[in-house]
Design a protein around this nucleic acid. Structure first.
Lengths: 347, 347
DNA sequence: CTGCTCGTTGAAAGCGCTTTCGCTCACCGC
DNA sequence: GCGGTGAGCGAAAGCGCTTTCAACGAGCAG
């Protein structure tokens, strides 16, 4: 049997109330008994039972993060920021990872169980009506990261604006025909980046050409956010212009770095030099992007994670406050794939 | 106030004992009341309080996984296997990620708290004397993955043998001088792979040359398992032979794929063609390896995760059983960096 | 010396659940 | 008609902790 508060109360000749006070840093305990209790507790290897604690207090001091982990880098960075934001607070972070987007609901269910945690961080989890219903029924504080809903605090990156910046960068470099590779239809980032693409075209007074746009139809469980999907999408795009090379896009905006890696490979296999024959811009700035010299839009992942926990803590303090929405602007990072200078890898 | 078992007992005109029985699938409940209770519970949105449950039962039905550096594909795959191994069991997986190797102890402390979980999966966590002490003091079941200790169940890959296979592959390809790039000194995989390197040299009747071996001295918090560490290590290696090109190694075994990526970049920057001027073999077979055509040693990550949970469950059933140790043999995957055929990316 | 205050402690009432024990009430065979 | 059986259920005792309330005694002013 594990040692309980009673055992150490007996040994230290105090009541369990006092032991509890010692461990909760209650001010009204004499220095004497405090030390005695600590000594006994240490000797007996006491450790409070978290279940009993969360029952007696009405809180767990835990924050759950539900994350679909496909390209782990983005999530890890966000989680890193979240961990940091929790430092110095009484809260700990618990992670419910899901390998696929569809597995998210199961993990969400677990995280939502009463007594599991006080707050919920949803990263890249689209707030479907069903999920919104479940989230509203819970008493936990909820913060959305990388997606938004008016009912909850949220932190997002302005994907649309980023898409526009990406395409404008390509237009400025003189490209007449700019392709676009997207994940499977219906994702929030995908839709937004597509809109940004159109914005840039419109601002430049150009007509959109559907032939220049390819949506992924592979790896649906990962929403097409894969190297392979990017690889195939690029092949499809190039195939479309196999018989009319003059029309071929000379630049491509790929909606996610991970897809861009596959796209680059397909381009190389097709004998295209990047840059030169083809310029490529990605989105996300994952760790391998710097290494591969990919021009992309950088998302402030660590900052997003950190801010997320700050919002969470604020909401835990004041559940009634109106939801707040923060939108970060992504930053264009020019590297080799659009003629930038090569840099030594740092990671 | 959240709805408790009492509320639904009132509403359904039964005792709380019956409600509890319904939710625990106790056989001695009439079909009638079972349905009634379920209906009421659903209507009121009841959900058991996990803390109270774990207090009353003596178990949480949770398994904690403590993993350093989830940036790495390796951990994700292991976790995927672990999730799979838990499917159909009453256990859920909880993840305590740590960005650095040193952060592991803090996470371990949290996971070890009484009432957090029933079992512990330690992935790539070296069993230091201090950790062993803590792990032996806990009543949780413990399984080590990617490291071993005689006191606990463990699952490892034979790194030494893998290192030998890697180097023998290079020797067979006719290389006289084979370099070795290692993480920071003192890691279990690093030491083992170094031993395998020596094994292969000895078997071929060659003298080891310390000039051919470089240990990382960068990114200590990640034990040098980074692109950058590999990049710099390769530079150091090449620098050593800048004034005597004839002695330069024509092949390099890099102790981790992630380091190999950096090493490849350094090689390219030095104007070396791979393969041709330099052959490279990595270790791990992470997702980007196939994409970059890196010859490497594949570890059965998913299988390891799955087996880990199986051992965990077995141990939970029978805490007294003697520890069992499983060693997987890594499999050589020949790709472009040692002259293998190019393959289309699948991920 | 009396009456207070204040720092320190203990008793006890929960927190929400599981589970043992035992009761009640058919239903059975004899 | 009677004891025996077993299905279905409730009462109540925990599980290990927090927190309120009250008690106690020492120290202080009057």
């Amino acid at each position: 049997m594990a040692v309980t508060i009673y055992d150490i109360a007996d040994e230290a000749h105090v009541s369990i109330a006092t032991v509890s006070r010692v461990f909760n840093e209650h001010p009204r305990v004499s220095e004497d008994t405090r030390r005695r209790v600590f000594r006994v507790a240490e000797r007996m290897g006491y450790e409070p039972h978290t279940g009993a604690q969360s029952l007696a207090r009405k809180g767990t001091n835990l924050v759950s993060a539900v994350v679909p982990v496909m390209t782990s880098f983005f999530f890890m960075e966000v989680l890193r920021g979240a961990q940091g934001g929790l430092d110095g607070s009484p809260y700990d972070l618990l992670v419910y990872p899901s390998r696929t987007f569809s597995g998210v609901d199961a993990q969400l269910g677990r995280a939502l169980q009463r007594g599991r945690s006080d707050g919920l961080l949803l990263v890249s989890v689209r707030p479907t009506p069903d999920r919104v219903r479940r989230l509203q029924a819970t008493s936990q504080a909820v913060v959305l990261v990388d997606d938004a809903h008016e009912a909850f605090d949220s932190i997002t990156v302005d994907s649309r604006w980023g898409g526009r910046v990406a395409v404008e960068h390509l237009i400025e470099r003189g490209h007449e025909r700019v392709g676009l590779l997207l994940p499977v239809p219906g994702t929030t980032p995908g839709d937004e980046r597509l809109a940004g693409y159109h914005d840039a075209l419109a601002a430049a007074g150009r007509e959109p050409d559907p032939d220049l746009v390819v949506s992924a139809d592979w790896h649906h469980d990962l929403q097409g956010f894969t190297r392979f999907a990017g690889y195939r999408a690029m092949q499809v795009l190039l195939d479309r212009f196999a018989d009319r090379p003059a029309q071929r896009p000379t630049a491509v905006f790929v909606a996610a770095d991970i897809m861009a890696f596959g796209a680059l490979r397909a381009a190389h296999e097709a004998g295209l030099r990047v840059p030169g024959d083809l310029d490529v811009v990605g989105f996300d700035d994952v760790d391998a992007s710097a290494y591969l010299g990919l021009t992309t839009l950088h998302q402030p992942m660590v900052e997003m994670g950190q801010l997320a926990t700050e919002k969470l803590r604020r909401r835990l303090d004041d559940p009634g406050a109106p939801p707040s929405h923060t939108v970060f602007a992504p930053r264009l990072v020019v590297r080799e794939t659009t003629g930038g200078a090569a840099t030594a890898p740092s990671a």
